[in-house]
Computed example of a mutant assay.
Amino acid sequence: MEITQQDVEKVAQLARLALTASEKETFAKQLSQILSHVDQLNQYDTTGIEPTATVMGQVNVFRADSVRPSLPVEKALANAPERESDGFVVPKIIEER
């Protein structure tokens, strides 16, 4: 499948990206190569092969959750430039449109 510069322009517009003519040409070529490679992979018969997210067979490598004491408020707010009794102060940023 061939990706044209017009296709790249359409996607760039949807993603709110400003691309140069050189970038459009490069991306069109690269995306066409990717789709060509995927098309080659589609030629292989994968009937009966289970989809995998990892080839290592690992299911869950995360540790179990455990309850631990939280950081004390004084220590957590030690470097805050401004603070209130129970937290730090964030400057209000509201712009008129």
Rank of each mutant, 00 (worst) to 15 (best):
M1H: 10
M1T: 09
E2D: 10
T4H: 00
Q5P: 05
Q5W: 02
Q6A: 12
D7K: 05
V8L: 00
V8H: 03
E9Y: 01
V11R: 02
V11T: 07
L14A: 10
L14E: 11
A15K: 12
A15V: 03
R16S: 13
R16K: 12
L19E: 04
A21E: 12
A21V: 13
A21I: 11
S22E: 15
S22F: 07
S22Q: 15
E23K: 01
E23C: 04
K24E: 01
E25V: 07
E25D: 10
T26C: 02
T26K: 09
F27I: 13
F27K: 01
F27G: 01
A28D: 05
A28W: 02
K29V: 01
L31V: 14
S32T: 15
Q33V: 08
Q33D: 13
S36I: 00
S36N: 15
H37R: 08
D39G: 14
Q40H: 09
Q40V: 06
N42A: 15
N42Y: 05
N42W: 00
N42T: 13
Q43E: 11
Y44S: 08
Y44V: 06
T47Y: 06
T47E: 14
G48K: 04
I49T: 11
P51M: 11
T52M: 13
T52D: 09
T52A: 14
T52I: 12
A53L: 15
T54I: 07
T54G: 04
V55H: 13
M56H: 13
M56R: 12
G57T: 00
G57K: 00
Q58L: 12
Q58F: 08
N60I: 12
N60K: 14
F62N: 11
R63A: 15
R63W: 09
D65H: 11
V67I: 13
R68I: 09
R68A: 13
P69A: 10
S70M: 02
P72M: 01
E74S: 13
A76C: 07
L77M: 07
N79K: 07
A80T: 09
A80N: 08
P81A: 05
P81R: 08
P81N: 07
E82W: 02
E82L: 01
R83G: 02
E84N: 09
S85M: 07
S85R: 10
D86Q: 10
D86Y: 10
D86L: 12
F88M: 11
V89C: 02
V90D: 05
V90Y: 06
P91N: 08
K92V: 08
K92C: 01
I93K: 08
I93V: 12
I94M: 04
I94D: 05
E96Q: 12
E96W: 03
R97E: 09
